[in-house]
Simulated assay, not measured.
Amino acid sequence: MPQRTWFITGISSGFGRTMAEQLLKAGDRVAGTVRKQGSVADLVASYGDQIWVASLDVTDTAAVRSVVDAAFTALGRIDVVMNNAGFGLFGAAEEVSDEQIEQIIATNLTGSIQVVRAALPHLRAQGGGRIVQLSTVGGQTAGAGASLYIASKWGVEGFAESLADEVAPFNIGVTIVEPGGARTGFRLRGLQLGTPLAAYDGTPAAGVRGLQNPAYQEPGDPERMAALMIASVNQEPAPRRLVLGHSAYLAIRAALTDRLADVEPQEAQAASADFPA
């Protein structure tokens, strides 16, 4: 496989960390961002110039542009830009705070958009590349108690889907990754809960209140998922979506089937809203 250079947001933990480890071990270069300096000191000590690290809060648009520009300047060419940084917010819509809503949209949606916008001039100038957008099974499904998290992921998927058609003429591929639950520590490290309201006790939205129970074990293997994400960049054309985990596949298939079943009976009614031919 050809050696590549990757730009990945959030490499201190989760999928970002796992991917960085696999890529570095394989001989690729990684430009990674972290929230806290020193959080990947072990990787720097082990791989030296093979890894380039910068501190970044993706909600700071000016900083995003500065860091992305610096990475391309330092490394010359970046083949893959991966939006990985993000977090989860769970609870009924009126259980989460205004501040939590603003933060999840700024991080998961706006932050991802701005990373891509900062990278596009460089990718076009070098004649192409690949953008990998980490989403979730919730990017195609929905559920009570996850409305704001789902909103951020549906938003970023809509952006990435449209972006793919915009940048295809420049030899830039876009892949949306939709993993199911994986043992990355996300539930304990990257998840916030709203403040429970008694009105929601016993309702479907209350089901998310136990998400941080450490006894639960997700079925997804993060090492295998990371390897499949890495392998996806060898596919031509870029796969529009990469579903990871059998439960994710089943949930997405069911959601799309139900959505189509809602739409198909409406063909005649939809046509009746047009001006007469």
Rank of each mutant, 00 (worst) to 15 (best):
R187Y: 15
V174I: 04
P196N: 12
Q192N: 09
R187H: 12
G190R: 07
G180N: 11
L163R: 09
E161T: 10
G190T: 01
R183F: 05
L163Y: 05
G181L: 09
F170I: 11
G190L: 09
G173F: 10
P169Q: 07
L163C: 14
F170R: 11
E157M: 01
I176P: 01
L197D: 11
A198I: 09
F186K: 01
F159L: 03
L163S: 08
F170H: 07
A151D: 11
F159M: 13
F186C: 06
G158R: 05
T184V: 02
A182N: 13
V167N: 09
V174L: 04
W154M: 14
V174E: 09
P169T: 10
T175D: 00
R189T: 15
V177D: 02
G181S: 13
G173R: 09
K153C: 07
L193W: 03
A182P: 04
G158V: 07
A160F: 05
V177L: 03
G155S: 06
V177F: 00
L188G: 10
G180Q: 03
V156D: 00
G155Y: 13
I172E: 08
A198C: 10
A182S: 14
P179N: 02
T184N: 02
T184M: 08
T175V: 06
K153V: 10
A182Q: 11
T175E: 00
G181E: 10
S152E: 03
G185Q: 12
Q192F: 10
P169K: 07
I172G: 08
L191F: 11
G180H: 04
F159H: 11
V156L: 14
R187V: 01
L188R: 05
P179V: 08
K153A: 05
G155D: 02
F159C: 00
E166G: 14
G155E: 06
R187M: 11
S152T: 13
A182W: 12
E157Q: 01
A168F: 06
E157T: 00
L197E: 12
L191E: 07
V167Q: 06
A198G: 04
G194H: 14
V174Y: 13
E157V: 00
F186Q: 06
L193T: 14
G158F: 05
I176T: 14
T195H: 12
E161G: 13
V156G: 01
L197N: 15
I150Y: 04
G173S: 09
I172L: 05
G181N: 12
F186Y: 08
I172C: 08
I176W: 05
P196D: 01
A182M: 11
S162I: 08
R189D: 12
G158W: 12
G181P: 14
E166T: 02
T175W: 03
P196Q: 09
T195D: 11
G155N: 03
K153Y: 01
E178D: 02
A164S: 14
G155R: 02
T184G: 06
A198V: 15
